[in-house]
Simulated scan of single mutants.
Amino acid sequence: MRPRSLLLLGAGFTVWAVAFVALYAMLSVGCRFGWDDTALDMAGGLSLQRLQLIAIFLVHLAAGAAVVMLLRRRRGEGFLYPLAYFAAIAALGASVFSFAGVFFLSACQ
């Protein structure tokens, strides 16, 4: 067992945690600067606030999917790789469940 394989157990949930912090921080910044009142015509009338929250969500979703795909190739090796793979899948599901509200919940009420 290599020390790196032990760190891979938390890789998916690390991406989830970074997404949580980034979304929460940018929600606060956007509300403070009034980005929720700035509608962008080229984005279908979405506010700048919602657009940046969706962008952060999608970037972190792609990062979580990349972690899953990386671990999928190695899940047959050893004991910890399959556990890390399934933990990354759980983290990806938690990301979708936790952060999908950026599409429909009010931002700054």
Results as ranks from 00 to 15, higher is better:
residue 2 R to F: 07
residue 2 R to T: 13
residue 3 P to T: 04
residue 9 L to R: 03
residue 9 L to A: 15
residue 11 A to T: 12
residue 11 A to L: 09
residue 12 G to R: 03
residue 12 G to I: 12
residue 14 T to I: 05
residue 16 W to I: 03
residue 17 A to G: 12
residue 18 V to A: 08
residue 23 L to S: 08
residue 24 Y to V: 06
residue 24 Y to C: 04
residue 30 G to F: 00
residue 31 C to Q: 04
residue 32 R to E: 15
residue 34 G to E: 14
residue 37 D to H: 12
residue 46 L to N: 03
residue 46 L to S: 04
residue 46 L to P: 00
residue 47 S to Y: 12
residue 49 Q to D: 11
residue 50 R to A: 13
residue 50 R to V: 07
residue 50 R to M: 10
residue 51 L to I: 06
residue 53 L to D: 05
residue 57 F to Q: 00
residue 57 F to Y: 15
residue 58 L to V: 04
residue 58 L to S: 06
residue 59 V to H: 01
residue 59 V to I: 11
residue 62 A to F: 02
residue 63 A to E: 10
residue 64 G to Q: 01
residue 64 G to S: 07
residue 65 A to F: 04
residue 65 A to H: 00
residue 66 A to W: 03
residue 70 L to Y: 15
residue 73 R to P: 04
residue 74 R to D: 15
residue 76 G to K: 08
residue 77 E to A: 05
residue 81 Y to R: 02
residue 83 L to P: 00
residue 86 F to H: 12
residue 88 A to K: 01
residue 90 A to Y: 05
residue 91 A to V: 02
residue 93 G to A: 14
residue 93 G to N: 06
residue 94 A to R: 00
residue 94 A to Q: 01
residue 98 S to T: 15
residue 100 A to C: 07
residue 102 V to H: 00
residue 103 F to A: 08
residue 104 F to K: 02
residue 109 Q to V: 10
